[in-house]
């Protein structure tokens, strides 16, 4: 356990190391969330509700989406691809720690470095737009439930990032992989559009997929759309997916590590 804590802390430090890098990463996602914000703002022009969401609810949902999207850095993909390309993966493989554990610790280290300030920025934005009405949580239970779901979502997303980063064993182009992974998770988890805006059947299916746990579940709990047993079941589904994706990552890793010898010249 100490080893993993050390890895997480190393990652935290290296995330802090380049301060330009660091501030810009946050700005980048802020640019995107602003784009969405303005787009929906324009979309709500002259409408009171879309798919049952008021403008205030949509705004709140998007804010939670921004938060969840930024708690996990994409840099772990970059880091893995880099180490595979330069052959460092062999060194990593020699360390007496579990590879997946190490990568997840790194992701959590970045969460501390990147996610916490993202949280602060989010709060600042929330406060700034509070006058135009970002909604408070619908109750104390909802607030706690949303926090639990969001925390679980961090692990879930890290696991997804890890699994997709393993694809770097088969390609040298992590930029493309990272982008399409981001596009996929962001769209299907609800970070760009509330899942309720999809056609009803599609939305129902999407809520069964692993991605929904990242944004949609915490956001709906927060807004009071998921309460009681439904909320509990949604969090259970999220937990189940987390375990499943972690396990899938292990299987993929075993397949991928067989590739190392081939790439490792």
């Amino acid at each position: 356990m100490r080893a993993y804590a050390a890895i997480a802390s190393r990652q935290f430090q290296s995330a802090l190391q380049y301060r330009g890098n660091y501030a810009l990463g946050m700005l980048s996602s802020l640019a995107l969330v602003l784009a969405m914000f303005f787009f929906w703002h324009a979309g709500f022009d002259g409408r009171s509700a879309i798919a049952g969401y008021s403008w205030a609810q949509t705004k709140t949902y998007l804010l939670i989406g921004y938060l969840s999207a930024n708690l996990v850095a994409t840099s772990s993909e970059a880091r893995m691809s880099e180490s595979i390309r330069t052959g460092n993966v062999l060194c990593d493989l020699l360390l007496p720690v579990d590879f997946q554990g190490a990568r997840l610790s790194e992701a959590l280290g970045s969460v501390a470095a990147q996610g916490v300030p993202a949280l602060l920025v989010t709060l600042a934005v929330a406060v700034a737009v509070a006058f135009s009405g970002v909604l408070p949580p619908s109750g104390i239970g909802a607030a706690l439930g949303a926090a639990v779901a969001l925390g679980l979502g961090v692990v879930l997303k890290s696991a997804i990032v890890y699994a997709s980063a393993l694809v770097c064993f088969w390609t040298t182009n992590y930029v493309g992989i990272a982008w399409s992974r981001a596009a996929l998770t962001n769209l299907l988890c609800g970070a760009l559009v509330p899942l309720a805006f999809f056609p009803a059947g599609v939305a129902a299916v999407l809520r069964w997929l692993p991605f929904a746990g990242i944004t949609d579940t915490p956001a709906r709990i927060y807004l009071g759309q998921l309460v009681g047993v439904h909320a509990f079941l949604a969090v259970c589904l999220e937990a189940a997916w987390t375990v499943a994706v972690l396990f899938g990552g292990r299987v993929l890793w075993r397949a991928a590590s067989a590739q190392v010898t081939i790439h490792g010249g």
């Binding site: 380049y18 330009g20 890098n21 990463g25 980048s28 996602s29």
Partner: peptide, 15 residues
């Protein structure tokens, strides 16, 4: 900033 490794470019692509 050696090591920034395309962060700014990601930002601009985002924009």
């Amino acid at each position: 900033t050696v090591g920034a490794r395309g962060t700014v470019a990601f930002l601009l692509h985002g924009v």
